[in-house]
Amino acid sequence: MSRHVLSLLVEDKPGLLTRVAGLFARRGFNIESLAVGSSEVQGLSRITVVVDVEELPLEQVTKQLNKLINVIKIVELEPEQSVLHEHVLVKVKVDTATRPQVLEIVELFRAQVVDVTPEALVIELVAGSQRTAGLLKMLEQYGIRELAQSGLLAMGRGPKSITERIPRS
């Protein structure tokens, strides 16, 4: 298995997400992460999907996705030529003894503290998967109370845009 990052430009229509997710489910592929939001073109959304599949079935899924009427474009993003980030919010148990240690880790990972109470900190990090995984690993020992992660967000490097040659209304 290998990890692939697909960026989909789709029409913002009801049921679209079900159609996309259903296609993966039908073919037995597990979606590792999924992020949906608007694109710079009105009426078009952008979906970033991370899947763990071999090349051949991936090609088949890509072709099938392309057949969905509301899917306008699909691009596979190569990790070396892309910015790949995810957004993590993590709540960690602290007391007076552990708080400085946690803050040091936050500092090391260039994360941010976004909420403070005597018993806990909420830490935010926007980074690549490796750095977020590293942060979480370091925080584990203090007791992670709650964790929320976005799907991976991805964008190709350089001046090109996925919406080039896409109709704009």
Binding site: G15, T18, R19, G22, R26, L68, I69
Partner: peptide, 11 residues
């Protein structure tokens, strides 16, 4: 629409 999603070209 949901029931027929996998068996329609579109809906």
């Amino acid at each position: 629409v949901g029931i027929t999603m996998p068996i329609t070209k579109h809906s």
